[in-house]
Simulated assay, not measured.
Amino acid sequence: MRIAIVTDAGQSQINGVVNTLRATSACLRHNGHEVLLLSPDDFPTFACPTYPEIRLAHKPYARIAASLKAFGPDCIHISTEGPMGLAARRFCLRQGIGFTTAYHTRFPEYLSARSILPKALTYRWLRWFHGPSKAVMVPTPHVLKELEQRGFRHLVLWGRGVDTERFKPVDEDHACIVRPLYLYVGRVAVEKNIESFLQVDLPGSKWVIGDGPLREELQQRYPDVQFLGAKPHHELTSYYNCADVMVFPSHTDTFGLVMVEAMACGVPVAAYPVAGPLDVVAHGRSGILDEDLTSACQRALALDRREVREHALEYSWEYATQQFQQHLFQIHGVKARPNNLLAGRSRPASGL
């Protein structure tokens, strides 16, 4: 099959959406599918408001339409709700083409945390965006239930995986580290609730890997914390393996891919018992979930790192991609038929 994926996450960004689409595209190609990944990397861009390091595509409709027509996809998947996603949605509706979408990010909570828009208004807009989608793919059962309660339709599960050959226990030189070492990996932004981690009184050391709008302010306020900046994805294994506990203070993530990567390295997770960690962490086996983050960090130290990795091995990109493929097959009623979505289009084909 020819599968077109449209995303607003540029491939130079460091986040879970980019890593998910990169791994999924690789698995799809390995399974014999042809994949077109359209991202802002090949478009004129402008800085995202409040996130200037993130670049969004400027007026991408014409080029997206031309690219999709030239590619002749069997399936179109819209991964994000930004300018690229809006343009692809508009194209599909104009052409009478069925499409799928994904819910990767809790934008209502993010925007509310930054006092930009109330959650109710953002959820209303998201229901409009995803309304025509034949399948809205969400990462965990908790997120699916939450969106159902908010009036979303056509929700299906699409899980996540981890490259257990890349993320695995390795020997590191720990001589200079004051133990125990508590590690945070992710954006340094208000919606990640990172200050809940920085404020807790813990013996040992704290490292923060990542960048974002709060980094400079928090670096000044917490001089004892090591802020190491953003790191390429392939370098994270070394940092995970230095850590005693991976701390994940977010209340708003839909999945939290970094937790699975850390666990694959044998590093237990300390987190709040909220959607994301509740679906990803096996409490008492691969991490500790507690409303008291200090207690969670301390109790996580006692977990068996071999058991932690064993839990992470349950997540594979191959299985996650099978879920993704199955939703496409079911929605489009396709059996690897060639280039049928854009051939002589005047109305939706049967099965859409």
Rank of each mutant, 00 (worst) to 15 (best):
V138K: 03
K119H: 01
W125C: 08
P108Y: 04
F91S: 06
R90M: 00
Q95N: 08
F129T: 10
V143N: 06
E109I: 07
P139R: 05
G98P: 07
M137R: 15
R106G: 07
L121Y: 02
R89V: 00
F107R: 03
F91G: 03
P108Q: 08
R94N: 13
A102M: 15
F99H: 11
H142S: 15
L126S: 07
L117K: 04
A113K: 13
G131S: 11
R106W: 00
L117A: 14
A113N: 08
Q95H: 09
V143E: 05
M137G: 10
K134H: 13
G131M: 00
S112N: 13
L121E: 04
R106I: 02
R127V: 06
I97E: 01
S115A: 14
H130V: 08
L117W: 11
R106V: 03
S112Q: 13
H130A: 01
H142F: 08
R124S: 13
V143C: 12
F99A: 07
T100F: 00
S112D: 14
K119L: 04
T105I: 09
R127G: 07
L126Y: 06
Q95I: 00
S115R: 15
A120G: 12
L126K: 10
R106E: 15
P139T: 08
F107T: 12
Y103I: 13
M137H: 06
F129L: 12
V138Q: 04
E109L: 14
A120V: 11
R90T: 12
V136N: 09
P132A: 11
F91H: 05
C92H: 05
R90E: 09
R94G: 09
K134Q: 14
A113F: 01
V136A: 02
G96F: 03
